[in-house]
Design a protein around this nucleic acid. Structure first.
Length: 477
RNA sequence: GGUCCCAUCGUCUAGCCCGGUUAGGACACCGGCCUCUCACGUCGGCGGCAGGGGUUCAAAUCCCCUUGGGACCGCCA
C-alpha cells in the first residue's frame, strides 16, 4: 500500500512551492489508492507557531487536500526520538560531541577561507568522558568511504560521494532532535513508502539513507520535484509577490484554478491544460514530472482562473462573490443580497471577470449609481444630440410591463427605427448613463438585471445632466 | 570553494528513454472575424532545441566539453 506524507514546518504560511509538493503527494496517494499523511515538523520550537499550523491546515482545506492520518506533531513524539537515539548510542553508531557552536563556527569560517569544505571533522568520535560545563550534542557516525546511490523516481540515478558527508547532529545540546533525524525516524515508523519533496532536499538524502541503515530501516523510494522559480529565475519568494496560498483566496482566485495551475507547473499530460480533479487523479504519475525548475507565470494562473469562473456553477460563484462585494463596500458586512438576483448579476459577469475581486468591482454599478461619468465617455456619448434618443428610450421602457431582455431589446429596436439610427448610437449613451462607464456587459441584460426603477431613474438623471450642461454652455457664450 | 541537480519559443510544456516531425500545444503579445462597448469565442501571425565538438547516411533525441541557472554544505527545515 502506498503511503505518502506532506510534512510542512509551521514557521510561516503555506506557500506555492509547498502547496505543489502537497498536491503531488496527494495526487500520488489518490491515484494509487494509498494514504496521504499530514505531519507537522515543529521540532524548531522557537520558530514554530500555532497560527502557522492553523493557516497551513486552512490552506490545505481550501485546496481540497484532505489527509487520511494526522496531523501528527513531532513535538508530541519526543519519546520516540529519544528511544531511537539511545539505540544508536548503545550500538556505537552515534556519539556525544562536546564542541561548542562557537568553536564550530570558527572552524567553518576558517575552512571556507582556506577553500576547504566546511564540514565537521569528527574529532569527538574517539572522545572519552564529558567536558566540563558543556552540554553535548549527539552525532551520527557517518560512513565517509565510497558513495551513496539514490534511485530517484524523478531525477534518475544520483551518485553522491560519501566524502561530502559529515557526522551530522541528531540531538541538539538542549536535547531536542534535528530535522534530518526526525524525518527519517518518522518516515520509517509511519511506513512511508514514497518520499515526494522539493529537490532542495536532494542533498540531504544521502545522509538520511545512512541514517535509515544505521537504524536498521529500509529506506523508502525518493522523488525530488524541482523548485518553483520567480521571473528572475531565483527561488520563488515574497519579493516576487503573493506566495501564500491563502493570499490567492483573498485576491479572488478559485481553488480549482490554483490547483490546476500548480499541478501543471512541472507536470504534464500531453497537450492538455485544463484538468478536473478526477482527471488529475486518473492521469497523475511521477514519470511525467519534469526535472527542471519551473518559472512561476501569473498570467497563466489568471487565465485558468478566468476559465474556471466562466465555466463555474453560478450559484456557487454568487456565494463566493458576496464577501468580495462587502470588501468593495457595495453591501454591508454580513448582508446577503437576494440569491436569485445575485445569480443574474454573476451571469452577466462570468465571462468577463478573471477573479472574484474583479467581478465585484465590475458589479459596482448594479449596487450604486454612477459616481460621475467617465470623462471620455461623457464627452463622446452624453451630448445634446442624443437627448431625443434617450427620451424616446425612457418612454418605451416606462411602457414595459415585462422587463425581460427580450422586451427591452424590442424597445431599443423601436427607438432606433423611429430615429433611423444604429444601435450603437443608442446603446453607448445609454451605457454611460446607466453605469458611468463605456464598458459593461450587454446593454439589454444589465437593464433587465438592474430593474425598471433603477434604470429609468439613471436615464432621467443623465438626461437632466446633459440639459444642465447644455444651458450652462449656452450662457457662457 | 566543494558536491549534487537542471537546460526545447519571453513563460509552462509535448517530443528525448527506443535518432528520420514543416519541432506540436497552452499563456502572453500582434492582426482578422463576431459585435451595442468590453470580454468570450473563433481564425491567423510572431517566436524555440544555450554553445562547441564527436558518433551516425541522419541528432532536439546518444556521448563529451564549455557556458548558464538552481540547490545544499547550520545545534533551520
Amino acid at each position: 500500500m502506498v503511503r505518502v506524507r506532506f510534512a510542512p514546518s509551521p514557521t510561516g504560511y503555506l506557500h506555492l512551492g509547498g502547496a505543489r509538493t502537497a498536491i503531488f503527494n496527494w495526487l500520488f496517494a489518490r491515484h494509487h489508492g494509498g494514504r496521504f499523511i499530514l505531519r507537522i515538523e515543529d521540532t524548531d520550537r522557537s520558530r514554530s507557531t500555532q497560527e502557522s499550523i492553523q493557516e497551513i491546515l486552512e490552506a490545505m482545506r481550501w485546496l481540497g487536500l484532505d489527509w487520511d492520518e494526522g496531523p501528527y506533531r513531532q513535538t508530541e513524539r519526543m519519546e520516540i526520538y529519544r528511544r531511537e537515539v539511545q539505540k544508536l548510542l548503545e550500538e556505537g553508531k552515534a556519539y556525544y560531541c562536546y564542541c561548542t557552536p562557537e568553536e564550530l563556527e570558527e572552524r567553518r569560517k576558517k575552512a571556507l577561507e582556506e577553500g576547504r569544505m566546511p564540514k565537521y571533522d569528527g574529532r569527538c568520535r574517539e572522545r572519552r568522558g564529558p567536558r566540563e560545563g558543556v552540554n553535548p550534542v549527539v552525532r551520527l557516525k557517518v560512513d565517509q568511504e565510497g558513495e551513496t546511490v539514490i534511485q530517484d523516481l524523478i531525477k534518475g540515478e544520483v551518485v553522491y560521494p560519501n566524502s561530502q558527508l559529515d557526522d551530522f547532529i541528531l540531538l541538539r545540546s538542549d536535547g531536542t532532535p534535528t530535522y534530518n533525524f526526525v524525518v527519517v525516524v518518522d518516515d520509517a515508523l509511519m511506513g512511508i513508502t514514497h518520499v515526494i519533496r522539493g529537490d532542495d532536499h536532494l542533498n540531504n538524502t544521502p545522509k538520511q539513507i545512512q541514517l535509515y541503515r544505521a537504524l536498521g530501516y529500509e529506506p523508502p523510494r525518493f522523488a525530488h520535484v524541482p523548485m518553483i522559480l520567480g521571473p528572475d529565475r531565483a527561488r520563488l519568494s515574497k519579493r516576487h509577490g503573493a506566495t501564500s496560498v491563502l493570499a490567492y483566496r483573498e485576491d479572488g482566485y478559485l481553488p480549482e484554478a490554483l490547483f490546476n495551475f500548480l499541478v501543471r507547473l512541472g507536470w504534464s499530460h500531453g497537450d492538455q491544460e485544463i484538468f478536473s480533479r478526477e482527471e488529475l487523479i486518473r492521469y497523475f504519475s511521477l514519470e511525467h514530472v519534469g526535472k527542471s525548475p519551473a518559472v512561476y507565470n501569473p498570467d497563466k494562473l489568471l487565465w485558468l482562473n478566468a476559465h474556471y469562473i466562466k465555466t463555474g456553477d453560478t450559484q456557487r460563484l454568487a456565494r463566493l462573490l458576496t464577501p468580495f462585494l462587502s470588501k468593495e463596500g457595495l453591501i454591508q458586512e454580513g448582508e446577503e443580497p437576494d440569491p436569485d438576483w445575485l445569480c443574474r448579476v454573476v451571469e452577466t459577469l462570468k465571462e468577463r471577470a478573471r477573479t472574484l475581486k474583479e467581478m465585484a468591482q465590475m458589479a459596482a454599478f448594479y449596487f450604486r449609481e454612477p459616481q460621475g461619468y467617465d470623462p471620455k465617455g461623457e464627452k463622446k456619448f452624453l451630448k445634446p444630440q442624443v437627448l431625443p434618443y434617450l427620451e424616446g428610450l425612457v418612454q418605451e421602457l416606462e411602457a414595459l410591463e415585462d422587463f425581460s431582455e427580450g422586451e427591452i431589446e424590442e424597445a431599443f429596436n423601436r427607438v432606433i427605427a423611429r430615429f433611423n439610427i444604429k444601435l450603437k448610437h443608442l446603446a453607448q449613451p445609454c451605457r454611460v448613463a446607466l453605469t458611468g462607464k463605456t464598458v459593461s456587459p450587454g446593454i439589454y441584460e444589465i437593464i433587465s438585471v438592474m430593474g425598471k426603477e433603477k434604470a429609468l431613474s439613471r436615464l432621467k438623471k443623465a438626461i437632466q445632466h446633459v440639459r444642465k450642461k447644455e444651458r450652462s454652455e449656452a450662457l457662457s457664450h
